[in-house]
Design a protein around this nucleic acid. Structure first.
Length: 323
DNA sequence: GGCATTTGACCACC
DNA sequence: GGTGGTCAAATGCC
């Protein structure tokens, strides 16, 4: 029961593939709307009293939420008009999972998502196995961080195609945290970092859920920062900003926070994990990457618009990253 | 030759 | 015993 609700699997295995995909899409849309609501709350709290930035964030996020609701209506979801469901405990960016077997005790993903570009997440992975999973159409691929040996990084991920659509959707599940994610990595630093995390957990400062909530909060802030950053860029193109413009400073601050929170470490380019695209003109990374479940796309061609649609196979997106 | 991927085997969990 | 996760030898690519 717990496994079914946690992984979003219907009982009995009698559901057809198309129904399963439909359910997965509805679930993703519902979660998108739910995350948007949370992002809106965070944004309004962070930008309280900051005039134009606050109004802009509220307007954009309201439109995003409305778009999710419209899509849910189109999909015929019974929950389209209902408020978002409460968050599943112990799960990050939730998504449908095609696996029908109950999960093992030690196989609880710290995060999972559905994306058409499962490899482009800013980290460098090395495949170490592939397995056919019973009652599923597609095999599951197992990846671990390329720095597993070199730095003892325990991060792993599993990728499984969960829909044969165009583009195909992949369920990506992440396990363990990266301990290699410092630009100038040193074993002592990693050990100290791990020790500090243990310390904080032991002292009750950051329990597991607290860490996750903080992580999700950073994701929300980074998404907001990307939106505001794009808005700010567009604003700059149209008219030079006033030096004391509250919106500009708020956006800049948010962008700074986001870059600290969301920017992946610099790594060597590989086939699986290309280096982050950098907009030379702006001197800032162009985030084609869906950062932990929220897709924020390249705004250059559609300034001021949100491009959440791509990861969900909706019109208006396209990251051009073939699998 | 070095590195990443593939794939069958092994092992642990349920 | 069935299933899923990992290991490690074999293979392929650059």
């Amino acid at each position: 029961m717990q496994a079914q609700s946690r992984l979003g699997v219907s009982g009995g295995g009698s559901m057809s593939a198309s129904e399963d995909e439909h359910e997965a899409v509805v679930r993703e849309l519902t979660r998108g709307r739910q995350l948007t609501a949370r992002l809106r709350a965070e944004a309004l709290r962070a930008l309280r009293g900051q005039g134009q930035a606050e109004a802009t964030a509220a307007l954009i996020l309201q439109e995003v939420s409305r778009a999710f609701t419209v899509c849910l209506n189109i999909m015929g979801s019974p929950t389209a008009g209902a408020p978002p469901p409460p968050e599943m405990p112990g799960l990050g960016a939730g998504a449908a999972a095609p696996s029908l077997a109950p999960p093992r005790r030690d196989s609880i993903p710290r995060e999972q998502k559905v994306t058409p570009s499962p490899h482009y997440d800013g980290y460098q992975w090395r495949k170490y196995g592939q397995k056919r999973i019973t009652k599923t159409h597609y095999p599951r691929c197992y990846y671990r961080c390329s720095f597993h040996r070199e730095r003892g990084c325990r991060a792993t991920k599993q990728v499984q195609q969960c829909g044969g659509g165009d583009p195909p959707q992949y369920l990506v599940m992440y396990f363990n945290d990266h301990t290699c994610d410092t630009a100038a990595w040193e074993p002592e630093a990693a050990a100290a970092s791990a020790a500090m995390r243990l310390d904080m957990s032991g002292a009750g400062l950051l329990d597991e859920r607290g860490v996750q909530e903080e992580h999700e909060r950073q994701v929300l802030v980074s998404s907001l920062a990307c939106v505001l950053g794009a808005q700010q860029q567009q604003f700059h193109h149209q008219s030079p900003p006033a030096p004391d413009a509250a919106g500009s400073s708020a956006a800049a601050a948010a962008v700074n926070v986001a870059h600290q929170a969301a920017e992946p470490p610099q790594r060597a380019r590989t086939r699986d994990a290309p280096a982050p695209v950098v907009d030379a003109a702006a001197g800032m990374p162009r985030l084609d990457v869906d950062v932990v479940g929220l897709d924020v796309m390249d705004y250059d061609d559609v300034p001021g618009e949100l491009c959440f649609g791509d990861s969900y196979g909706l019109p208006g997106g396209g990251d051009g990253m073939p699998f």
